[in-house]
Amino acid sequence: MLVFILNAGSSSLKYQLMNPTTKEVLAVGLCERIGIDGILKHEFGEGQKLTLEIPMPTHKEAIELVLKTLVESEGKVINSVDDIDAIGHRAVHGGEEFASSVMVTDKVIAKMKELIPLAPLHNPANIMGMEICQQLMPGKPNVAVFDTAFHQTMPDYAYMYALPHDMYTKHGIRKYGFHGTSHYFVSNEARAMLDKKQNTRIIVCHLGNGSSVSAVLNGKCIDTSMGLTPVQGLMMGTRAGDVGAGAISYMMTRENLTIDQALDVMNKKSGILGISGKSSDLREVLEGMQNGDDKCRLAVDMVAYNIKKYVGAYVAALDGVDALCFTGGIGENAALIREKVCAGLDSMGLVIDPVKNNRKSRDARDIATNGSASRIFVIPTNEEFVIANDTFKIVSELQK
């Protein structure tokens, strides 16, 4: 089965064409600047790349261009759109309605539209991608795979905020969590690496421009760092993470900010960028630290300390830990962050091996010392495979 994987953003569109049974990726690409001028970056074959600058007024033209590129241009990898068996969509917010991936129907789209207030930037784009694919490829099954679904197993005492209870019953204000496909994939890979399916206590640190930590007990999420929105939790590329409500109110008063302006500061001007004053890219900040920039040093220390606090909290929540996992662009590549996070965690059974930690590899690996009571894994994530595999399973079941 060939699955066309789509991740529609407000002005961008990421895609892959994958066979989930073999994990073979035929093509991967990105449409940028939709509605402005339009750039398509398409990769296929043995590292071949194609870049096209073509106007894309809307997502419809972008998806049409992608399909044409897959079947007609020098980037061709299939003979016809008919070779695509199903479409798997990344869907950011499923609220409490969707605890698993589902076939896209009119009822599902209607429910996703009701959830737009919870994800006003993401859900409209996700829905648009689904509706356009239904138009351009009529009869092809579409599946929605939700970022929030994996976290729906959290107990109420973990996901509730200590606000008046009717804030939850009336408005759905609670912790939902995100990056669920990554946390699901990595935690299952860790269980396989442990060769242990029962009584597994796993902490996953998904670290990139957006970052989150999850506590996973026997394959089920019991807590995660992100909340109602992705701004809660860890300090990230441009997001502030956990900030007290009093500090936000005081900042708004002193700077004469509206709530929208304050949210803009917390989402786009804070985090690594806000502290370093240099960049939201940790690689540039690490370089700045090495060159003696103290604000860059502070940003690096804060990133590691924030992660370490959540790891400690989740060891307590899980009553121990079998494996601590690092994934995402920072988690997989920043050895110094892994070192700083694990420093002093010996009493929790987590002892990092400095040689293994600094050894570069693209493969999943154990970087704990041989004598460490718990394992420390670096596991490359594969969210697209989760989307493709869920799509394959749902469509195959319907075809029986």
Results as ranks from 00 to 15, higher is better:
residue 2 L to C: 03
residue 5 I to F: 12
residue 13 L to N: 00
residue 17 L to G: 06
residue 21 T to W: 09
residue 24 E to P: 12
residue 25 V to G: 09
residue 38 G to E: 03
residue 68 K to R: 12
residue 73 S to K: 10
residue 76 K to H: 06
residue 81 V to A: 13
residue 84 I to L: 05
residue 87 I to W: 08
residue 89 H to C: 11
residue 90 R to W: 14
residue 95 G to W: 01
residue 112 M to V: 00
residue 120 P to R: 15
residue 129 G to W: 00
residue 131 E to N: 12
residue 136 L to W: 03
residue 146 F to D: 11
residue 149 A to V: 04
residue 150 F to T: 11
residue 157 Y to G: 14
residue 158 A to P: 13
residue 160 M to S: 15
residue 166 D to Y: 03
residue 171 H to Y: 15
residue 172 G to P: 03
residue 178 F to R: 06
residue 185 F to C: 13
residue 194 L to E: 07
residue 196 K to L: 04
residue 196 K to R: 06
residue 220 K to C: 02
residue 225 S to F: 07
residue 236 M to Q: 01
residue 236 M to I: 02
residue 239 R to M: 03
residue 239 R to L: 05
residue 246 G to K: 07
residue 250 Y to M: 12
residue 251 M to C: 10
residue 270 S to P: 04
residue 278 K to F: 02
residue 285 V to F: 01
residue 293 D to I: 08
residue 293 D to V: 07
residue 294 D to L: 05
residue 297 R to V: 14
residue 303 V to C: 02
residue 306 N to P: 14
residue 316 A to T: 00
residue 329 G to I: 11
residue 335 A to L: 10
residue 339 E to Q: 06
residue 343 A to D: 15
residue 345 L to Y: 00
residue 347 S to C: 15
residue 349 G to N: 10
residue 350 L to N: 10
residue 355 V to R: 05
residue 374 S to T: 08
residue 376 I to C: 05
residue 379 I to H: 07
residue 386 V to L: 12
residue 386 V to T: 13
residue 387 I to M: 01
residue 398 L to V: 08
